[in-house]
């Protein structure tokens, strides 16, 4: 093998293979982005959802929580927290109470800071979490606990 298989052949496999599979990734990405509107329900992105996403980002929520499995694993998954904590009927009331009760100051317990959000901001963040929970993500997580 080492005699007949030359460096030039190896180089060609490298260049040819990577270009081919990069193009495959791009083609599949093109197809995926065409399909995604059916699943992410982007028609539901209101200004409130947009503001909520911005609040999610500038408070670095992903530094403790995960969102659909990505982020930190220090605090609960929030991609489906809307479902877990009451849904349409009860989530917003729960969420407002929760945010305002922080920090809980229970000795030894992991502590969430208070981010001093006003009512409008808490509502925007809730809308963002509702939007995330309503995306079709192929049935993940396995149960409501996230």
């Amino acid at each position: 093998m080492s005699e007949s298989f030359t460096k030039g052949m190896a180089r060609n496999i490298y260049y040819g293979g990577s270009v081919f599979f990069l193009l495959m990734l791009l083609a599949l990405t093109f197809h995926t982005t065409k399909e995604m509107p059916k699943r992410d329900h982007r028609e539901n992105i209101t200004e409130s959802v947009e503001r909520g996403k911005m609040l999610w980002e500038v408070n670095n929520c992903v530094g403790c929580h995960s969102l659909i499995g990505e982020g930190a694993y220090f605090a609960p998954e929030l991609g489906n927290v809307y479902v877990r904590r009451g849904g349409e009927a009860g989530f917003k009331a729960f969420f407002k109470g929760w945010m305002n009760a922080q920090p809980l100051n229970i000795p030894g317990r992991r502590q969430m800071p208070n981010f001093h959000l006003n009512d409008q901001e808490i509502d925007d963040l809730a809308e963002f979490l509702k939007f995330t929970a309503e995306m079709d993500v192929n049935g993940w997580p396995p149960n409501d606990e996230g």
């Binding site: 190896a10 496999i13 490298y14 293979g17 990577s18 599979f21 990069l22 495959m24 990734l25 599949l28 995926t32 399909e35 995604m36 699943r39 992410d40 659909i68 499995g69 995306m135 079709d136 993500v137 192929n138 049935g139 993940w140």
Partner: peptide
Amino acid sequence: AMALITGLLGTGHHFYWLAT
């Protein structure tokens, strides 16, 4: 070559649960 041939489409293991 093996790294890129497997790794480029291997990106797909992050797209299981993502409105994809």
